[in-house]
Computed example of a mutant assay.
Amino acid sequence: MTLIPHAIPLINDPQVVHALAARWRRARTLLLLSVGVLPVAIGIVCVVLAGMTSAGQRIMPWWSAIPAVAAAACAWALLTWLRRNGLSDPHSWLPATTLMTGAQLVLGVLPGSGIALRLSPGAAIAVKALCAAGVLGAGSASALARLAHRSLLSAPVLELGSTAFPLVLDGHGTRVLIGTDRVDWTTRHGGRVDAGVSFARVLRVSAHANAIALHTASGSWTVPVADPEGTRALLLRRIAWWEERRDAAAEREQRRYLDLVSLLAAVSGEATRGGITVTVDSNGLTTGIDLSPEVRELEPEILAAQLMACVQKARQNARRQVEDLVLEHADDQMVKASH
């Protein structure tokens, strides 16, 4: 399994893929180094430090392995986070890498070096070299994560509007964040003001001198920006991408609903008792009654009672099938929503 896909996640437009291929290739290489190679290397440094504590010792103290385990756990957590959630948010690459590699230093490299120096004083030079390598690796990982983010999102191009990456635009004392379903901004003209509007409310976007205007049904918002035309084009591209995904999701939901309706319409409950067979549909309405020759000898009261019992049992059978289908549909919805 590839840790970081070669293609940009959540993009199906070949033109967008081609336009951003060079950026993603460079960002992917830097990200692999910062989140994968260097944290694993720091973990290996801690393992080597733990191994050095056994030099000259008959029995290696169990607690000397704790720093190596902690460093390995941090590296694993960082890789897991990147695979599950981190790829779609380049702005979190630097904080996450700094946090996890910093934890590796505090929990792994530094205590591991202290333990190794105490138990193996003859290897002081090697221990100090390994400690320096761990510190250098952590610093390099953070620097590479910053470069990965910048190489992908610096100088935003129009094609980035057709991706799921949050886009941050700074200028004229305003910070604009274009997300996947809304745009938020912070202005510092005469005091800090935080505001935002969802794409569903935006009716029109216009560009003016040093600002863009977001027109909604309840009024207009004026947002100062450094490049009004470029910001407007990027925002309209992201809104169009959001509308395509919204329409596609609605179409998929409609198809799933129609499939469920067709499955429910095909539900049929059946029950047999004393020569009487009753079938009902998903609504519990009787669709068929089959009487065998042996029921001719039954008293009318007994026949009626057995017939009603068969109807009730058939309805219970149909109700169970309906519940199973609805629960299976709901479980599928939850699974797809989590992805």
Results as ranks from 00 to 15, higher is better:
V326E: 11
R320P: 05
V176E: 03
A19M: 09
R204I: 07
D331M: 10
M334R: 15
L260F: 09
R204C: 09
G86V: 09
G108D: 06
I212V: 13
G122R: 00
D13I: 08
V157F: 05
R175K: 02
G284V: 08
R320C: 05
V267A: 07
L82S: 05
T186H: 12
A309G: 04
V278P: 00
P166N: 14
S151G: 10
A7T: 10
R320I: 08
A96M: 15
H172D: 14
E251K: 03
L327M: 12
L20Q: 10
I42Y: 05
S54P: 04
S338D: 11
A123K: 01
R146Q: 14
H189Y: 09
R58N: 12
V48N: 05
S142Q: 08
L82W: 08
L264K: 12
S34K: 08
E229N: 06
S154Y: 01
P5R: 08
R146V: 03
A213V: 15
A145G: 09
R255I: 11
G230K: 03
L177M: 08
E328P: 01
M60N: 15
G108I: 03
L78S: 08
S34G: 07
S88I: 12
N85R: 15
L325M: 02
L263E: 15
A141M: 04
L325I: 06
N283H: 15
R23P: 01
